[in-house]
Design a protein around this nucleic acid. Structure first.
Lengths: 115, 115
DNA sequence: TAACGATATGTATTATAAAACATATTGAAA
DNA sequence: TTTCAATATGTTTTATAATACATATCGTTA
């Protein structure tokens, strides 16, 4: 019997601002986890990435977006934390929506091809 | 005057076979240049990549595709060369077509978003 | 049959990105 | 006013990918 092969198409999208990356899959996941856990540190731990990298990603996003996507708080009993702004939530929503639409589009179109 | 920012969406697609990458933008460009120049060596030089890497890419593609995308010839007055097969040309066509369709789709959809 | 230029492939070096480590700072709450 | 956990940031180390280098092989053609 011939070996069965699984053929499929994979994609990634990124939002850019002035030729610099604003958002991609990883950063959106980071935002989602910050929203859920209330801090960059917890989000980074969940994603098994270094806190430093996560912090830098947030910093870059905030610089490049029209408005900050995450606001941070220093000090306090719990040491502080981070919150996703309305703008940030909007960014997550836009990204995920476009991602889903693209997924459906590509699945449909890919079926028409032989590869 | 407020600073004008250029916002846009960027994407990449890949063809996969059994969870392994078969084709992406770079490999397709490599195939196109092999087709035009008649050898892996010339294509690699044009793309400023090492011959070794180009050769390995071709090797992987040939292993993973149903049929070889490139056939190679050793020896001869010109030392040999490489040719893109009909299957390879088909792969290029499929990839570029899907890429273009996706580009149009994303441009249209992205305009509807605020990011 | 000698020469040529491309394929084929192993090894070593370099460049880059990621992670790890270390430490200072913050400020609300106990 | 001491404590705490998270932010903030510099430095070092590690891991990985890319490149560079070296060399053998091939077979047609002159």
């Amino acid at each position: 019997m011939a070996k069965k092969t699984k053929n499929n198409v994979v994609f990634r999208i990124w939002f850019f601002v002035d030729d610099e990356k604003l958002l991609g899959k990883g950063r959106v996941e980071l935002l989602e986890r910050i929203e859920k856990g209330g801090s960059i540190a917890s989000a980074a731990k969940e994603m098994k990435m270094s806190y430093r990298q996560a912090w830098q990603m947030v910093s870059e996003m905030n610089q490049r977006a029209r408005k900050k996507l995450v606001v941070k708080q220093l000090g306090g009993k719990s040491g502080g934390g981070a919150t996703v702004t309305e703008e940030g939530k909007e960014a997550i929503k836009c990204f995920r929506e476009l991602e889903n639409k693209t997924r459906m589009f590509l699945e449909k179109e890919y079926k028409k091809l032989k590869f």
